[in-house]
Design a protein around this nucleic acid. Structure first.
Lengths: 199, 199
DNA sequence: GCAGAATCCGAGCAAAGGCTCAGGTTTCAT
DNA sequence: ATGAAACCTGAGCCTTTGCTCGGATTCTGC
């Protein structure tokens, strides 16, 4: 049994160059993750691509899982922001409009770099998530559930789960198949979601 | 760079005990895959759990990828059979019925052991698939496309991809969330699919 | 029974990867 | 200018993992 190392930063960077080091490590990890999947992410490879010595890497990250966890946390935080905005905009809207807003927000983090988003999502499945990330995820689904419940959707928890799964899967599959335009996915997703909800 | 080993059997088992060995290896690999993901599948671990020496394992499988590839191939072959039956039953049926049959068939391989099915699907994403498995996948989607096209669904290729992604994602998510009853997923999926297709 | 084929075994090698540590360099505050 | 703190470096240790090889064991056909 391997004792599991913590997933938080070992120490916080204080100077600008240290922050740059941390940034470079994250960026390199994301690139490698995107190209070769979780298996390809090794601390040595990350350090090399980041142009940073392996020792420096370990000064801030206690292990490779911590690096990936940081990427996941950042993505989830971004998603939460997007969905918060969307949920606010949902208030008082009819359900069709609300669904549109929620789905569009869920696709938002795919817009900048769909391949990277898919890669990070994939990494998330192989990670023992820390409490903070779990809290982010919980809050995200809670937002969706609240909107669904406000429109009297039966079993809103299950519906939220199903809709989230559909959204991510379709976006990832489309990206993998070479689709570039994220906006082209939205109407298809809306049709499916409306059918699911019986609207 | 690591030179990639072939993914076919190194030599075919001739005696009964050899077939048992191969079976035990596959079974052990599936179990480990299910418990800890692709990363946990090491040839040593597989051999040990299978109750087989590492040497015996390598007599038949040229590497861990070949073992996983075999699992994927078997699952895909099974899926193809299920869908062939469904596609035959679709002939002359109206689209609502056809969609029902296709979705039910797609869920079929989740019925026996959903967790294992999800694990193997996940392994598939991390594998350089061999020609035979690719052919199986191509035939599967071709079947779906044909049925969709017969009902004048626009852009049937894209629709097939979207529907397949939705189906797998919802099934996996439900399984991960602890749902036991596969049949409970079908009606939800049907609603989404009918909405997607505008039926 | 017997020869040869098929099968099995597991110690151990080589490569890869996670991670540490002792020591050098840069930055900052005074 | 100077001492302390922050930061960086990379050789190298240790564990894990993929895989081979020589030899033991079992089966099959005659």
């Amino acid at each position: 049994m391997t004792r599991e190392p913590p997933v938080t930063l070992r120490k916080s960077p204080r100077q600008a160059r240290a922050r740059a080091t941390c940034e470079a490590v994250l960026e390199a990890a994301a690139r490698i993750l995107q190209r070769g999947g979780v298996a390809a992410v090794s601390t040595n490879a990350v350090a090399e691509l980041a142009g940073v010595s392996i020792g420096s890497l370990y000064q801030y990250y206690p292990g490779k899982e911590a690096i990936l966890a940081e990427l996941v946390r950042a993505m989830r935080a971004e998603m939460l922001e997007d969905l918060r905005r969307a949920a606010r905009a949902c208030e008082g809207q009819e359900i069709t409009r609300a669904v549109h807003l929620l789905l569009a927000a869920s696709l938002e983090h795919h817009r900048a770099d769909p391949a990277r988003a898919a890669a990070i999502e994939e990494a998330e499945r192989h990670l023992p998530l820390d409490a903070e990330t779990l809290a982010l995820k919980a809050e995200i689904t809670a937002l969706v559930i609240a909107v669904l419940r406000a429109h009297d959707v039966p079993e809103p928890e299950r519906a939220a789960r199903d809709l989230a799964a559909m959204t991510n899967a379709m976006a990832d599959a489309a990206c993998l198949a070479g689709e570039r335009d994220v906006d082209a996915i939205l109407p298809r997703l809306e049709r499916a979601a409306r059918g699911y909800l019986g609207v």
